[in-house]
């Protein structure tokens, strides 16, 4: 369910689950678009030669997934601040699930605070963070 104004938001509400596209073709395209090419992002075998368990999803792409999940939930919202902690690498071609919960609401200012996580299908947290989102008052 999406929200349009600050008054649609409920404390403790969970955002709809967002499943990002982590296929290597997609994550590689992101990496190249931000100038971060190289084996660790483009090729599983090349990444293993660099000591990684497989090709990586760029850390900031995790942030991109989180903001896309927010925009999907709040089409009129603006992400004013987002802070992400890279707890463990996200791997390309490995499904991920994004979840988020409303932890604070300022109805006068139109601000919502969210706690967010990116987990893999083993329920292991890869990225977590918080976001401050401004929503219309009316």
């Amino acid at each position: 369910m999406s929200v349009n104004t600050i008054h649609d938001v409920e404390f403790g509400a969970e955002l709809p689950v967002f499943e990002p596209d982590t296929r290597i073709e997609n994550t590689m395209a992101f990496a190249k678009s931000v100038g971060w090419g190289g084996p660790r992002f483009e090729d599983h075998e090349g990444a293993r030669k660099e000591g990684f368990p497989g090709a990586l999803v760029p850390g900031i792409m995790g942030m991109g997934f989180l903001t896309s999940a927010i925009h999907s939930w709040a089409p009129n919202g603006n992400v004013e601040h987002i802070d992400t902690v890279f707890r463990a690498p996200m791997l390309a071609d490995t499904p991920a699930i994004i979840s988020a919960v409303v932890t604070d609401i300022d109805e006068e200012e139109g601000l919502v605070e969210l706690d967010m996580t990116v987990k893999n299908t083993k329920d292991e947290t890869r990225v977590f963070g918080t976001a401050m989102v401004r929503l219309p008052l009316e």
Partner: peptide, 16 residues
């Protein structure tokens, strides 16, 4: 590049 970074992240909003 802005469009690729946005679309690959799952962004749908036209301003991105």
């Amino acid at each position: 590049r802005l469009v690729i970074a946005a679309t690959t992240s799952g962004e749908k909003r036209p301003q991105y």
